[in-house]
């Protein structure tokens, strides 16, 4: 098995009366075995619908999904003991304690009771295990959900926004827990829109936009796909403004940054033409180089690349 998850042409349309809402629109995705895979996208980009389809919560969709080598949802039952999933905010019986909720789930799969204590301990809920879930904060419910997910000691974890509602300490603990799980050979598939979390946690990412995958690769590839350079020209602010106007006249998009550097939208491989044009106007380049793009910039560029489509839904 080369891939933990393989999705081909996934399409999910919800019907609301006469209205049709396309949540996922021909998604192709391949999640390799091992490591942490980030599933990024703005709200309503189809992340949760994709996860619902992968985990058997959704039954009717077009396309094919294979999870741990078997077709989902038809044959999911055969691999469910190797799969732990957390979809949206996990729901439990509010009147039951956290431990009791987990014990009932464990019982349904014949999981030893001792695993309940281990799982609660692993997520830092051991001291509140006997309290009713209705008294839990959102963050505690998230942690209980993660405890339920690791109850089976799965080789693949599918987590939908696991950091929702967590405070900074909780997010750090969650990150460390997921990293530890991945380092022990498991595959962790995590959807999120928290880019700082993703950049610190994930090995590979896929970016979803309007139900379609617009990027799939390593975090370094996403960050390194910048098509811009940073330029500093010799002289004062007047020289910078003259340089900006000149570059703009050449048809390149230019931004003057607060520190006096220019951000010019030009592939780094063509930057030499820029140097020659500036020199022709007596503007001497002190410094030029490919712009280091942050994950956020890469993400925004992918998700909002086409401004004319911004604000449209699905």
């Amino acid at each position: 098995m080369s891939a933990a998850i393989e999705i081909e042409g996934l399409r999910k349309v919800y019907r609301r009366g006469r209205r049709q809402i396309t949540a996922v629109d021909g998604l192709d995705l391949e999640v390799p075995v091992g490591g942490v895979f980030g599933f990024l996208g703005p709200n309503a980009s189809g992340k949760t619908s994709t996860i619902r389809a992968m985990t058997g919560i959704l039954r009717s969709f077009d396309g094919s999904i294979r999870v741990l080598g078997v077709a989902a949802p038809r044959h999911l039952d055969g691999v469910i003991d190797r799969l732990g999933a957390l979809v949206e905010t996990p729901s439990f019986f509010p009147a039951f304690s956290g431990a009791r909720n987990l014990a009932l789930l464990a019982r349904a799969r014949g999981i030893p009771r001792a695993r309940v204590e281990e799982a609660l301990d692993a997520v830092g809920l051991a001291d509140r295990a006997g309290d009713p879930v209705k008294g839990y904060s959102l963050g505690m419910r998230q942690r209980l959900g993660l405890a339920a997910t690791i109850l089976k000691d799965p080789e693949l974890l599918i987590l939908d926004e696991p950091a929702n509602g967590l405070d900074p300490d909780g997010m750090r603990e969650m990150r460390l827990t997921l990293r530890r799980l991945a380092d022990s050979g498991r595959t962790v598939f995590v959807s999120s829109h928290l880019l700082a979390e993703v950049s610190q946690l994930c090995d590979r990412v896929a970016v979803l936009r309007k139900g379609r995958c617009v990027f799939q690769g390593s975090v370094e590839e996403l960050v390194g796909q910048s098509q811009a350079v940073q330029v500093r020209v010799h002289g004062d602010g007047d020289a910078t403004q003259r340089a900006a106007a000149g570059v703009r006249a050449l048809g390149h998009e230019v931004t003057v940054r607060d520190d006096g550097a220019l951000r010019v939208a030009i592939p780094p491989g063509e930057a030499w033409t820029l140097v020659r044009q500036l020199a022709a106007h007596d503007l001497w380049v002190d410094e030029i180089g490919p712009l280091e793009r942050t994950l956020e910039e890469g993400y925004v560029e992918l998700v909002h690349g086409d401004e004319s489509e911004r604000g449209a839904t699905w």
Binding site: G56, I57, P73, T89, S91, N101, R109, A148
Partner: peptide, 14 residues
């Protein structure tokens, strides 16, 4: 109503 059915079905998809 509580949504715990989805949690249960994640443990037993049958």
């Amino acid at each position: 109503n509580t949504g715990s059915l989805a949690t249960l079905l994640l443990f037993d998809p049958s």
